[in-house]
């Protein structure tokens, strides 16, 4: 059996990326609605932060101007809604219904399969959501957000952030193996990520001590890192190296953690009806 043809390492998983991409395409109405939601969210946070900055009386607060804050918060919202793919629910349902057993007998890695499944959907809905929101933000702040190499750093860094978020989602989904509660676990994860990553309020406005702690957690690497790179006009080489190496560090740690946690947990799976 040694004569099996060698294939590219991830080729078989690309089929999943393609399938989930096509599946997303069939739900166009919900895609458009999610874009509408992102645009309205942008308008709401625009009014909110405009009145906050107006009341403050100064232009720059904690190193952030109003255009920077708006870009940060609005794009964070758009990225969040393109990252919301209900992975925890999918894994939870696989576990509760027992379909997960079918994945064990296939020559596929459950983690990698889900990763390829999710990434194509996220990349697609990223373009649908984030590009229009970015343009709207630029119009609202009169093209004050630089449009150059910073966008490239942002896109690269968001991609790494997506993988970090995927690992967290996967781990949270695995917890459902032990607790049988999907809604509660999922909502807690969403809350923790949205507060600690800077989506609700940019990390720059956190009290100093709290921000220091946040920098040691993986959550800020999902949103705060790419968004900071986006609103910084001329990032220093040091900032770039630090940002990307922290993200890569978390990816390595979390991939190993997620995979081993799943491996340990899959031994305790009990499926109704045997």
């Amino acid at each position: 059996m040694n004569s099996t043809k060698r294939e590219l390492p991830f080729r078989r998983y690309l089929a999943f990326s393609r399938a989930s991409f096509l599946e997303t395409l069939t739900f166009r109405a919900s895609l458009l609605l999610s874009l509408g939601g992102s645009l309205i969210y942008t308008a709401v946070v625009c009014f909110l932060w405009k009145s906050i900055f107006n009341s403050a009386g100064t232009e720059i607060v904690n190193g952030m101007t109003y255009p920077m804050t708006l870009a940060y918060v609005a794009i964070a919202g758009a990225v969040t809604s393109s990252m919301t793919i209900y992975l925890v629910w999918d894994i939870g349902r696989d576990i509760q219904s027992g379909t997960i057993a079918l994945w064990f007998v296939k020559p596929l890695d459950y983690f990698t399969m889900n990763l390829f499944n999710s990434v194509s959907v996220i990349v697609f809905s990223f373009f649908i959501n984030v590009v229009p929101v970015f343009i709207l933000v630029e119009i609202l702040v009169g093209w004050q957000i630089p449009f150059g190499i910073n966008i490239l750093w942002f896109v690269l860094s968001v991609f790494l952030g997506v993988i970090i978020n995927f690992c967290l989602d996967f781990m949270v989904g695995t917890i459902c193996l032990h607790t049988q509660s999907i809604w509660g676990i999922n909502i807690m994860k969403e809350v923790v990520v949205s507060v600690l990553s800077g989506v609700t309020v940019p990390l720059a406005f956190f009290p100093d001590a709290l921000r220091q702690v946040m920098m040691f957690l993986p959550f800020q690497a999902i949103f705060n890192t790419p968004l900071t790179l986006m609103i910084t006009p001329n990032p220093s080489t040091e900032l770039l190296i630090r940002s990307f190496s922290i993200q890569i560090f978390w990816i390595i740690v979390l991939v190993i953690a997620a995979k081993s946690f799943f491996k340990v947990s899959s031994r305790v799976i009990t499926i109704n009806g045997g």
């Binding site: 607790t179 049988q180 509660s181 509660g184 676990i185 999922n186 909502i187 923790v192 949205s194």
Partner: peptide, 20 residues
Amino acid sequence: SDFLISTIGMIAVNVSGFLG
């Protein structure tokens, strides 16, 4: 356990709104 986790989750959502 589902009831307990969901209740904590619900309160967590509300607390996060407050924290914002």
